[in-house]
């Protein structure tokens, strides 16, 4: 079947199998390998991308289901080469180690800040609670998101 969707602002059309998972469409078909996968059961959250502005677990969405919709991945976070404040925050506050969960964390963090520009520590922990990080122990991720909240550049948080 043919599927057409917007990915990071660009319209893409590809011939796919109905069963193709969105995460594989992004990684294997479009070579957008910033989105990872870490489980098969939508428990780990390394595959989080945006579907129509909401974070979703792309291992549990069919590529076909994204047809006609808009997908945003970590590759679409920086605008004109300028890092999003959450990306900068993760660098500033050591919010990553191996980097594997990072893209999913960044996408969830950006969505949180768009809805709630000044989240508390508890709200941040809640927001990322469907995503596992094996390296950081989460405290630095929380600080990274707070950094982004404090240092938000208004023009890129829209």
């Amino acid at each position: 079947m043919q599927v057409t969707m917007i990915v990071n602002g660009d319209e893409v059309t590809r011939e796919i199998e109905g069963r193709l998972l969105l995460v594989h469409f992004l990684r294997d078909v479009l070579s957008l390998t910033g989105t990872h996968w870490g489980c098969d059961t939508s428990n780990c959250g390394t595959c989080v991308v945006w579907l129509d502005g909401e974070p979703v677990k792309s291992c549990t969405v069919l590529a076909a289901m994204a047809g006609g919709h808009e997908v945003r991945t970590v590759e679409g976070l920086a605008v004109d080469g300028k890092l999003d404040p959450v990306q900068e925050g993760f660098i500033q506050c050591h919010g990553l180690q191996c980097g594997f969960c990072t893209p999913g964390m960044l996408m969830t963090a950006r969505a949180l800040l768009d809805r709630n520009p000044d989240p508390s520590e508890g709200e941040i922990r809640e927001a990322i609670s469907g995503q596992i990080c094996r390296c950081t122990g989460y405290a630095t991720i929380v600080r990274s998101v707070r950094w982004a909240a404090v240092n938000a550049a208004p023009e890129v948080t829209s």
């Binding site: 939508s42 959250g45 989080v48 909401e54 974070p55 979703v56 677990k57 549990t60 969405v61 969830t108 809640e126 927001a127 609670s129 469907g130 995503q131």
Partner: peptide, 9 residues
């Protein structure tokens, strides 16, 4: 119930 990202879907 589940987690916030799952709850989106």
């Amino acid at each position: 119930i589940a987690d916030p990202v799952v709850r989106n879907r």
